[in-house]
């Protein structure tokens, strides 16, 4: 089993690497790379993302050919991918952080700023919040409903089709915090920073 964490200079990914290595131990090899061949031969990939939607998309695009490689992996070969935070957001058609930016378009929808109800709610949404699990997702195996996860974001993914939403969290609105569509998984929260429950999600993804 080979799991590749896609390294496209999207900011700080050391916590993602550490958590995957901790869980993988001997049952999986964790690669951290943007090398196309290594990505192609992986069984699963993880797409992290920090900073703005635009800066992450720009970083992906800077590595010529990476987009096509990822596209093929996800939409043609239909192998599992886990997007984390902005990594998940980039699955959308379009994002509105900084300026309108085209996303990867794997799950129809948009990424817009969380409605803070005229300043009533602080942004970023930082800290531990509970997730409402809406549908059975393979990555939530043995994860209890209302588990706490660590969040840090100001923008949210709003998918067109509600059926892809696997969990929401209550902030100023019901914020989408996890999606699953066939082989595509994503969490708005940070499983790598969500203590034992977060590590369980990583374990579930590795075991898919």
């Amino acid at each position: 089993m080979k799991v590749t964490i896609v390294d496209y200079s999207s900011g700080n990914i050391s916590s993602v690497i550490n958590s995957f290595k901790e869980i993988a131990q001997n049952k999986a090899t964790i690669e951290v790379t943007s090398d196309f061949n290594k990505i192609k031969t992986s069984d699963k990939i993880v797409l992290p993302g920090q900073g703005s939607f635009k800066s992450c998309v720009d970083s992906l695009n800077k590595i010529s050919g990476l987009n096509d490689t990822l596209n093929e992996f996800v939409t043609v070969n239909k192998k599992p991918i886990l997007g984390i935070c902005v990594g998940l957001q980039m699955f959308a058609d379009v994002g509105y952080e900084e300026t309108e930016t085209k996303g990867l378009g794997w799950i129809s929808g948009k990424v817009s700023k969380i409605d803070n109800q005229n300043g009533k709610y602080k942004l970023p949404h930082i800290g531990w919040n509970q997730i409402n699990i809406l549908k059975e997702s393979k990555i939530f195996k043995e994860v209890e409903n209302n588990s706490h996860m660590y969040f840090v974001h100001s923008y949210e993914f709003i998918p067109k089709d509600n059926k892809v939403i696997s969990a929401t969290t209550d902030y100023s609105t019901k914020v989408v915090c996890s999606v699953e569509k066939e082989n595509i998984f994503g969490t708005q929260f940070h499983p790598e920073k969500s203590d034992k429950t977060g590590l369980k999600i990583i374990n579930n993804f590795i075991n898919l």
């Binding site: 900011g11 700080n12 920090q50 900073g51 703005s52 800066s55 970023p124 930082i126 974001h153 100001s154």
Partner: peptide, 8 residues
């Protein structure tokens, strides 16, 4: 904050 994101 531009380089790494405000979150950190």
């Amino acid at each position: 904050s531009k380089k790494f994101g405000s979150q950190c």
